[in-house]
């Protein structure tokens, strides 16, 4: 079991309030991702849940037990740190065994769990090496192994993939997702990368300056962002946000259209502009378009290989039903 409830939890460092009072429930078995720009308080929130920071106010409940003042080791949570935080002078085996040794698990049980974790994480051949002799991805797996053997109520990940190269990141992303599917344990995952959030999460929590901007499944956030911040943050490339007369036509202060919801047409487009940079990915082409009279740069996705080049005039039609409308406060208008 691993249901985590935050009730008016807040955190200040000195005079600086990093997390204003905040309510959040993380359901048992969910893969929840905290996403937001750097410095918005994601790590702080995770560390509050872990017990590595003391709350300035509010209550944290784990499985309906008040854990606000319970020391980290007693909360039954396991954390994977950004720097992996492996113990450099211990072998991989000893690293993974460490939490069990501290908990007084029998030698035999330790060996059983280490072998199982090593097999699941492809670490069997590396058990006698030291962390310094492993690659980044392997270290990551050791850190996960050390978390798994504790059989925690929930896993906490703090940007675990940000030290890996792009290819490895994609691979590890899948491995962590698969691990979650297999274990069905609550996982809280912190990242600033909205792609990781979208691909892994059951539930995304978008944070800005310690505030929760929106909570929902990836598709809910994609389809109905509650405000312009979430609209701009979720989705890649970013949603085009347009203000001024064009927005007024739709009765809004700001309208948002995702690049994939604008069609490139031969002529008679609603909008037109000149092609700036074109990014050819093969399956898609992203055009950055100038001189539309709407925004500085409008991003448009065209399917497949489109042969328009720099300086060409392009005709565009946004799909009317996919236009998001926001009021002057940036809130969504239904």
């Amino acid at each position: 079991m691993g249901r985590i409830t935050l009730d008016k939890v807040s955190k200040s460092f000195g005079d600086v309030e990093v997390i204003p009072p905040l309510d959040l429930t993380i359901e048992d078995g969910d893969f929840t991702v905290f996403v937001g720009p750097s410095g918005c308080g994601k790590s702080t929130l995770l560390r509050l849940i872990a017990g590595l920071e003391d709350t300035s106010g509010g209550h944290i409940r784990i499985d309906s037990q008040d854990a606000t003042h319970v020391p980290p080791a007693k909360r039954g949570l396991a954390m994977v740190f950004q720097s992996y935080a492996l113990y450099p002078h211990m072998s991989v085996r000893k690293n993974i065994a460490f939490p069990m040794k501290m908990a007084g698990v029998s030698e035999e049980e330790q060996r059983r769990r280490i072998d199982a974790a090593a097999k699941a994480l492809n670490l069997t051949d590396y058990l006698d090496r030291r962390p310094g002799q492993l690659s980044g991805g392997q270290r990551q797996r050791v850190a996960i192994g050390r978390a798994i053997v504790r059989e925690p109520a929930a896993f906490l990940f703090d940007e675990p993939l940000s030290n890996l190269d792009a290819a490895l990141r994609v691979g590890m992303r899948l491995e962590i997702s698969e691990l979650h599917k297999r274990l069905r344990t609550t996982m809280i995952y912190v990242t600033h990368d909205q792609v990781e959030a979208m691909t892994m999460a059951d539930k995304i929590v978008v944070l800005r300056a310690g505030h929760i901007e929106q909570v929902g499944s990836p598709l809910e956030l994609y389809r109905a962002p509650r405000n312009t911040f979430v609209a701009g943050f979720i989705g890649s490339p970013k949603m085009n946000l347009i203000e001024g007369p064009e927005a007024a036509k739709h009765g809004a202060h700001t309208i948002g259209v995702r690049p994939e919801h604008i069609d490139v047409v031969e002529e008679n487009g609603i909008w037109q502009g000149t092609v700036g940079v074109a990014e050819h990915l093969g399956s898609d082409t992203f055009f950055h378009i100038h001189n539309t009279g709407l925004t500085d740069t409008l991003t448009v996705r065209a399917l497949g290989e489109v042969t328009l080049s720099h300086g060409d005039t392009i005709h565009l039609s946004p799909r009317a039903e996919q236009i998001h409308k926001f009021d002057a406060q940036g809130l969504r208008i239904e």
Binding site: G51, L52, A73, L77, M79, L86, F98, R150
Partner: peptide, 21 residues
Amino acid sequence: DREQLEAAEMDGAAPLQRFGY
């Protein structure tokens, strides 16, 4: 690395054990 000490703390090591290990 502060995270190592924190990891040990989460792994259930008491202050003296953190010092020793």
